[in-house]
Structure formats: structure tokens, C-alpha cells
């Protein structure tokens, strides 16, 4: 299955979660280092703002370590838990910071691909297309967007996505398919229009 390499982390998700003394710090660093990039990317997608993503992912880790430190027991499927909590945190963050959406869009426009030396400026055309696609992706419903991101960008398996979203695998597959179909139709319309 594609994305299996990324997803293979799942097997190691229920890893050392003992908390005490020196080990705690090191294991914390381990977990953080292992997941921070993916979670930052995922949160960045939802928030469309990497700076806010930093805050969100930080809080996710804080939550994780507090709950573990308080003896909440092992977190099975750490990866799913992390994605789920990240998603919730990000969504909450978006709701709370609605006024920052203006800044988000500003940032977005600033991260358009640069065109160096005038060469490879086919990149600009590509960049526009990509922005269009991402725009359409954001127009999907929350759940659809989440599943699409988890499958296509994060590379989680259906089982993992099911764990993250709390749905069955079949359901996840259906949602994914319909989302892609929807996107396909919209993109076609958009391209036809432009």
C-alpha cells in the first residue's frame, strides 16, 4: 500500500512511555522529534499558517506529556492520537483566532513560489495551479479535507485514519473517494472557467 513507509511508524507508536527522571526528557525529545515535522505540516495545512502551527503542535505535545505524566496509561496508537488532537487543536485555534484569517491569507500570498533569475518560471504557472488546487481543497468540508490530507500528504493508512477520525475504514474510503470526485469536478469547472 502506498504510504506504507510513512505509516509503518504506527507499529512503533505504542512505544516507551515511561515517565521518570532522565529518561522522561530523552523520550520526550524522541517523540517530539519524531512527530513534530509531520504534525507541524498537518497543522499548517489546517491553519494555513505555520506560525500558528507551532503553537498548536506545542500544545499537543504538552497535552500528551501531561496526560502521560498524570498516569493516564499508555496511549495506544500514539500517531492517531497525535493527529486527532492536532486536528482538534487546530480547528479550535482557527475558531478562536478567526480574526487572524486575514493574516493567514496574507502569509499565503507571500509564500508563492519565487522565480529565480527568470529561469524555471514555469514554476509560477505551476504555483498558481497549486494554489488553485489547495484552495479547492480547503473548500471541502472539514472531515473530507482531513481525510484527504491524512491520506495523501501524511500518508496514513486507512486503519490509522480510521483511528484518527473515529470512523470505520470503509467509511474513510468512501469519504475519500467522494472528496476526490468533488475536487475533480470543481477543478474541472475552475480550469474550464480560467
Amino acid at each position: 500500500m502506498k504510504g506504507a513507509d510513512r505509516g509503518s511508524d504506527m507499529g512503533r507508536a505504542t512505544e516507551i512511555l515511561a515517565f521518570g527522571g532522565e529518561d522522561a526528557a530523552r523520550r520526550m525529545e524522541t517523540i517530539v522529534s519524531q512527530y513534530e515535522t509531520a504534525l507541524l505540516r498537518y497543522a499548517g495545512r489546517i491553519l494555513n499558517n505555520p506560525l500558528a502551527a507551532q503553537d498548536v503542535v506545542q500544545n499537543v505535545f504538552i497535552k500528551l506529556f501531561r496526560s502521560l505524566g498524570a498516569g493516564a496509561g499508555p496511549i495506544a496508537e500514539l500517531k492517531a492520537w497525535l493527529y486527532r488532537v492536532t486536528h482538534n487543536e487546530a480547528v479550535d485555534h482557527v475558531r478562536r483566532e478567526a480574526r487572524l484569517r486575514l493574516l493567514h491569507s496574507k502569509y499565503e500570498s507571500e509564500t508563492q513560489a519565487e522565480c529565480r533569475d527568470g529561469r524555471h518560471c514555469s514554476a509560477t504557472v505551476n504555483a498558481e495551479r497549486r494554489q488553485l488546487v489547495l484552495e479547492q481543497l480547503r473548500r471541502l468540508s472539514d472531515r473530507e479535507q482531513q481525510i484527504v490530507l491524512l491520506r495523501l500528504e501524511e500518508g496514513l493508512s486507512y486503519g490509522e485514519i480510521a483511528a484518527v477520525t473515529g470512523r470505520t475504514e470503509g467509511n474513510v474510503g468512501n469519504i475519500l473517494h467522494h472528496a476526490v470526485k468533488k475536487l475533480s469536478a470543481r477543478l474541472k469547472k475552475a480550469e474550464v472557467a480560467s
Binding site: A25, P50, Q58, I62, F65
Partner: peptide, 29 residues
């Protein structure tokens, strides 16, 4: 096109800033 868009626009090598990391560390301690 989806994959391309996602891959091309993903921020590279993102890590938690040291400040955020420090907060996480403090919180877990």
C-alpha cells in the same frame, strides 16, 4: 495534481522552534 500541490507547498523541514520546544520540555518536567 493534488499530490503535486501538497508536496510542492509543504514547508520544508519544519521543526518546533526552540522556544516552543522549551515550553514542551518544561511542561513535561
Amino acid at each position: 495534481v493534488l499530490r503535486d500541490a501538497l508536496a510542492a507547498t509543504a514547508p520544508a523541514g519544519e521543526r518546533l522552534s526552540p522556544a516552543h520546544r522549551a515550553r514542551v520540555r518544561r511542561a513535561s518536567a
